[in-house]
Design a binder for these strands. Structure first.
Lengths: 222, 222
DNA sequence: GTCAAGATTTTTGTATACAAGATTTGCAGT
DNA sequence: ACTGCAAATCTTGTATACAAAAATCTTGAC
């Protein structure tokens, strides 16, 4: 038996919202959801609080919880901030990196290459995430690392879409090589620049991508 | 009559925690607090969720809510991130700033000077906060602005301590002038650099400050 | 005196009950 | 038919009740 229903509900709802099971602006009905999950409204409401804190839903007093999907504008804004944070991680990591951490990062980058060669974009995605998480930790600033992980988590489904674009995998891998090289040389400026553009590229190209997939992709991904 | 007790309680507790009424690691007793605020445990627990989301308390399953004051290390880390975010705001603002926004910022800077001349450090603090908030908005990235405000809010009491250090007010004002000048010239690089160091200086000097005030200040500020 | 195991008390987590604000429905009047 | 108002209904917010886990206390053996 699970220990805390509120946490499980938060996780489940988070996944449902992120994958698009709920439309933007849709109200999360406490009673229906409590029946659906076979729990009372109490843990549900606690889950709502957590979701509101991470920006996935908006809590309107006396009105209820409404899911808030980021629009194109907000997404681009979030990518812009993510680029800055990752760049910062790179800059700090280049200065503070230990040998062990560098080796771990190299290993993750190499695992990315392996996934790329076998054409497994899901595996590439996982290794890529690991690589970036290692980088955050290598910044030596755990507050920064936590913030970066939070934002990464929120952008997760959109990054994943990016990786499905033709040629993006190869390009991403090239960028990884440049990043690792910069870290190896202790070149803080290069590491920052490479990482920033590695992320910024995703935000900048997002409009194109959305035009291409034309809303349908996200909404179908229920 | 208020509409949502949970919100009021969150605000009150937030203030109490920030001002140091609760020691680091202290458990927030649901029953005692519910008696103190004359409410039931339900809204209290919702307030706990919100406080946990902003990092002021840690929710340990089946154990309760424990207040978490940032240590020196975490504070320095937070200032490091704040410096980056403010620098980013400056860089973007220098590029995207409208005339109206620039005028507002100039006005706020001038109000800072007025407060400085009258030696009113509290008024200076308020105007300073206004100036920075305007800058965040001027970045044209509302997600960034929101993140910056969140972090500013959390660092608020520590920034305030900074301003009480001898000579810091004058120095801060000089930095403001440099920032405004950079924005006026549309010099993104300079704006970023000036803002970053404007904040970084606070983090870097924090160790000294803490040594000077030697823990006592924060704990007395109950 | 110390330690361990079991009983007792607290305390958290969840369900349910109730109060009050928001929304919808129905009806009267034009 | 349409508007305005009031009653009924629904929904949120809060209090209380109850279950289960953690902490504390008691007791007994060594």
């Amino acid at each position: 038996m699970e220990q805390r229903r509120a946490d499980n509900i938060r996780q489940t709802l988070e996944q449902l919202i992120i994958t698009g099971a709920f439309a933007d602006g849709e109200r999360l009905d406490e009673i229906r959801l409590s029946q659906r999950f076979s729990v009372s409204r109490t843990p549900l409401r606690e889950a709502f609080q957590m979701l509101a804190a991470s920006g996935l839903v908006e809590l309107v007093p006396r009105r209820g919880a409404y899911v808030r999907h980021p629009g194109i504008v907000e997404l681009v804004e979030m990518f812009e901030v993510m680029a800055e944070l990752e760049g910062m991680c790179g800059r700090l990591a280049a200065r503070r990196l230990t040998d062990d951490a560098l080796n771990e990062i190299k290993q993750a980058a190499s695992d990315c290459e392996t996934a790329l060669e076998s054409g497994d974009s899901d595996a590439y995605y996982d290794e890529n995430e690991r690589l970036h998480n290692l980088l955050y930790a290598a910044s030596g600033n755990s507050f920064l690392a936590a913030e970066a992980r939070k934002l990464q988590r929120r952008l997760q489904p959109f990054r994943r879409m990016q990786l499905r674009v033709r040629g993006r995998l190869m390009q991403s891998m090239d960028e990884h090589r440049a990043i690792v090289a910069a870290l190896e040389n202790g070149d803080a400026e290069a590491a920052e620049r490479e990482l920033r553009s590695h992320i910024a590229v995703q935000g900048e190209k997002f409009n194109d991508l959305m035009a291409h997939y034309n809303q349908s992709k996200l909404k179908r991904a229920v």
